[in-house]
Every structure is written in C-alpha cells, then in structure tokens.
Amino acid sequence: MLLIDCPYCGKRPEVEFHCGGEAHIARPETPTAVGDADWGSFLYYRTNPKGVQAERWLHGHGCGRWFNALRDTVSDAFVATYEMGKPRPDRDAATASTPSNA
C-alpha cells in the first residue's frame, strides 16, 4: 500500500485515496468549438508513460480535496504532490532516493 503525501494532510495511506487518471488535461473552454477528432483525444487518449507521470488524486476519505501528483509508473514512487492549479514541478524520478546494498 502506498503512502501518499496529500498537500493538505501529509502522508496518508493509499486506501484513503482515489486515483483520477492523468493530470493537466484541461477541459476545453468552449467544447462545442472543438472538432470531433480533438474531442475524441480529449476524452480517450492518454500518454500512459513508462516513468514519471502527472496524475490526479482525490483524498476522498480525508480532506476531500483533489490534487496532482508526480508518480513513477515503474517504481510507484511519488516524486511530488501539489495543489490543483499549480504548475507541474520540474522534477523526475532521479530525485527519489534509493539506498543501495553495495
């Protein structure tokens, strides 16, 4: 089970959260002005990267807030969490420290 650093509550167990998929996909201001293909992309197409991706998370059984998180889809490491509306932090998986047995 993951420990997720809610920007409002601090580290809390994953069972309190709900993942809402890829972040920073803004709903178009005027949907009716968007063409079929672009609207299809908005609805259904996601990048699904191997590595760090920005995701929406809801602390539903906690403070009730949605926030964004950078999570490494390979290691499950949370690189950063940040409030909705804030820009994506300029960080990558390398910042997550891993001790070694060397």
């Binding site: 089970m1 509550c9 167990p13 069972v15 309190e16 059984h61 906690g62 403070c63």
Partner: peptide, 19 residues
C-alpha cells in the same frame, strides 16, 4: 484505521476523516 496515531503524528487535538 491505517493512519499513524503516534503522539507526534496525531496528538491530542487532532481530528480527521479517515477509514
């Protein structure tokens, strides 16, 4: 309840929604 209830993490005077 899976949250940390140590005195440091959740002292008297704390309140939260959880599981």
């Amino acid at each position: 309840c899976p949250i940390d209830l140590a005195a440091k993490a959740f002292p008297a005077g704390s309140a939260t929604r959880t599981i």
